[in-house]
Write a protein that binds this DNA or RNA. Structure first.
Lengths: 350, 350
DNA sequence: CTGAAAGCGCTTACAG
DNA sequence: CTGAAAGCGCTTACAG
């Protein structure tokens, strides 16, 4: 009892429809060349036999695998941010709309991992790559560009020439929006809890904060340290233990993780988030909406980033028309306001 | 300037090495058939040309794609549990060790999604599937079994006949361990916060709790409701508002998410986790170790599950020897003890 | 141990 | 509009 899928080939469809293999292929790839009634007969046969073109045979012939390579990194232990999960899903779904699938592989970070990319290319296993987890001085964009391999990165190159196509989130614009929101609800001493200089993403976010402060006539105040929630807690503690007249009334955090630490520092001092001190994070991680957390945060348009990355890549591959516009797309995050930044003081300007 | 990868074929390697294509193929697939010095010459040529067999050509000929299908579901909004992220990574890595890659696709849940599986099969795009997100009455195991398609599921079939191979976590054993841990540190009134009956996973977990209680001579007390953190908070609130002598001193929760809700209910009553009331969750989600959370939780051996799933599948495909033993593997989660269940009362038995 | 031949299932110019 | 032919790059019996 063979499975219905196992049998059908172009040949068997042709036999059933009473035409040549070529005609069946035409129905699939250039239907306008085939007379309507012939086409109908062939389509009936395809349906009856549940025929699907064999992917390997098609790839061998066309030299297109219809597979997009994606390197999956292990999520760092304790990572709160399932952003890449959503990204991969969006990429997979957008790719499917054009008959593409995603081929997953693993590789060491840095240039040690380039071999895996090279290997997939040599095998002609993929047509191009979608890159995520891009970091400062990432070797991949330069190398892929040199090799002439189509790719789109989620995340710009933060150092060196900006090579290749990318889609990214405008962290600076997001932070500007956060500061404007806090200013609008009455805050005047707004501090920033950040990462050390040189992280690209972190620098971008603090730049948006600083620019907004200057525009609004506020004094920027930035504290920085490496790390996650523990660090955020320590940095926030130092700020909150300031003399009352200097103490910030709002904390803008480079990530939700730092913000969780800051919330903890508030709790330890009996300060109520939103009432006594406002807190804003970045990433809108799932924990932000837990009862008792209710953290205001910037949400990244992950699905859109995935979708646009795929469209750009398919454009480079010639499968769809390359979307008009530059090689780069910068998308704005959106501020999700929760209890951690509800008006403490009535707006002074309205 | 062609990329070095673009050119090499079996043919060009054969020319460089001065042998026939067949001999090159033998070096790759049956090296013992080739004389050592010939083999050396061929291997040199392969290295020099950076030759890798074309995957499509190989697949077309061998009828093996060396691709494992994996359906990626969108993480439910607000999902705290990145477990599938780690699972996919483990599967990808284990597969790579045998020259396999993972093909990602999306599909609707339920029988509506079977078409996508059928399509990949008809295209011969994959050799088999690794299933995750299995649910009660999941149509996939039965259907794949009928079709004779190799697959391994992460998660057993909770209803109907147990068809096909699977690897799963022993939730009951985990909950038993949690109860024993709480009992050992002195707790005698241990309640369970669960999901409504019929979820498979939830029923398994509560069964382990109940069994442990009975064995230890404790009264099982189970409250249930649909939902996540908000529900956990409400269920915990009801328990904590009991008369003092009936109030549980420990809460075992069906998931970390319920446990976060329970922790919130404690905080709202000025109760200290671990000191006044112990709380235990399940999944060891990243948020469990946030400062101020420190939730005791059961950690699933995800990497091992991924690894064993792949080995089983490759066994079914005849690529490796099928691991001895049954078609099913049940792995124990491990209890990670944190501050939410540190001894409140000195152990009464030691 | 090595080589010539067939064929996996498809697509793409090219005649008719 | 339709069909016969070539060929994508590989592996696998089969002779020598």
């Amino acid at each position: 009892m063979a499975t219905p899928e196992s049998g059908a080939t172009l040949e068997s469809v042709a036999t059933v429809a009473g035409v040549s293999r070529q005609t069946v292929s035409n129905v699939l790839n250039a239907p306008e060349r085939v007379a309507p009634e012939t086409r109908q007969r062939v389509e009936d046969a395809i349906r009856e036999l549940r025929y699907r073109p064999n992917r390997s045979a098609r790839s061998l012939r066309t030299r297109i695998s219809r597979l997009i390579g994606y390197c999956i990194q292990p999520a760092p232990a304790g990572n709160l941010n399932p952003v890449l999960d959503r990204f991969v899903h969006a990429v997979t779904e957008s790719a499917a709309a054009h008959g593409f699938h995603v081929l997953l592989f693993t590789a060491p970070t840095g240039s040690a991992g380039l071999d895996r990319y090279a290997e997939l290319l040599a095998q002609r296993a993929v047509d191009g790559f979608v890159l995520a987890d891009t970091v400062v001085a990432d070797p991949r964009p330069g190398w892929l560009t040199e090799q002439g391999v189509p790719f789109v990165a989620f995340g710009r190159s933060w150092s060196g020439p900006d090579r290749g196509h990318w889609v990214d989130v405008d962290g600076a614009a997001g932070m500007t929006e956060a500061v404007e929101h806090l200013h609008a609800i009455g805050h005047r001493r707004i501090a920033f809890i950040g990462w050390p200089e040189g992280s690209g993403v972190g620098d971008d976010r603090v730049a948006g904060y600083t620019a907004a402060c200057l525009r609004l006539g506020l004094d920027p105040r930035v504290v920085r340290a490496e790390g996650g929630a523990g660090t955020g807690r320590a940095l926030a503690a130092a700020l909150l233990d300031d003399a009352a007249e200097a103490r910030p009334t709002a904390l803008v955090c480079v990530s939700d993780e730092s913000a969780y630490g800051a919330l903890r520092a508030l709790a330890e001092r009996g300060l109520r988030p939103g009432e006594d001190v406002a807190v804003v994070g970045f990433d809108d991680t799932p924990a932000a909406r837990l009862p008792g957390v209710d953290l205001t945060s910037l949400s990244q348009p992950i699905e859109q980033i995935g979708h646009e990355s795929v469209l750009m890549l398919l454009g480079l591959l010639g499968v769809v028309e390359l979307p008009p516009g530059p090689e780069h797309r910068l998308l704005r995050p959106s501020l999700v306001v929760r209890a951690s930044s509800r008006p403490a003081v009535p707006p002074t300007e309205a």
